[in-house]
Amino acid sequence: MVVVTVTYTAPLNEVDPWRPAHGDWLNDLIARRLLLVAGRQVPVVGGVHLVPRMPAEDLDRLLAIDPYVLNGVATHAVVEFTPMLVAAGLEDLKSQE
């Protein structure tokens, strides 16, 4: 499993025009189960994505086409982890490994 943090590198007024394209990109990844969860950080300085384990090269390729990255308004940081304990109903997250 992978946690991806998104950090805005530009003011929100420069990020906002790319928000619809970024949302479309996220929705496509969710539809293909290449992304499990996505949301904004609080305060709004970026976002957090939960991604199933995949080869690092594949993840790098996916993140490189994020409209925020393509337009120079955000960067990503990646942390891989192994889910050991999960709440009831989320057992499938453990099988990602």
Score class of each variant (00 low, 15 high):
V2G: 00
V2F: 12
V4E: 00
V4R: 03
T5D: 00
T5V: 04
T7E: 09
T7I: 01
Y8H: 08
T9E: 11
T9A: 06
A10F: 03
L12N: 12
E14W: 01
P17L: 00
A21Q: 13
H22M: 05
H22I: 02
G23L: 13
D24N: 13
D24I: 10
N27F: 10
D28P: 00
A31G: 14
A31P: 00
R33I: 04
L34C: 10
A38H: 09
G39V: 03
Q41W: 03
Q41R: 15
V42R: 11
V44W: 11
G46T: 08
G47A: 08
V48D: 00
V48I: 13
V48S: 03
P52K: 06
R53H: 08
R53P: 02
M54I: 02
A56Q: 05
A56S: 09
D60W: 01
R61V: 02
L63A: 02
A64E: 08
I65K: 10
I65W: 05
D66T: 06
D66C: 02
P67I: 06
Y68K: 02
V69S: 08
A74S: 13
T75L: 11
T75R: 14
V78D: 00
E80A: 09
F81I: 10
T82Y: 09
V86I: 14
A87Y: 12
L90T: 14
E91K: 12
D92P: 11
D92N: 11
K94F: 06
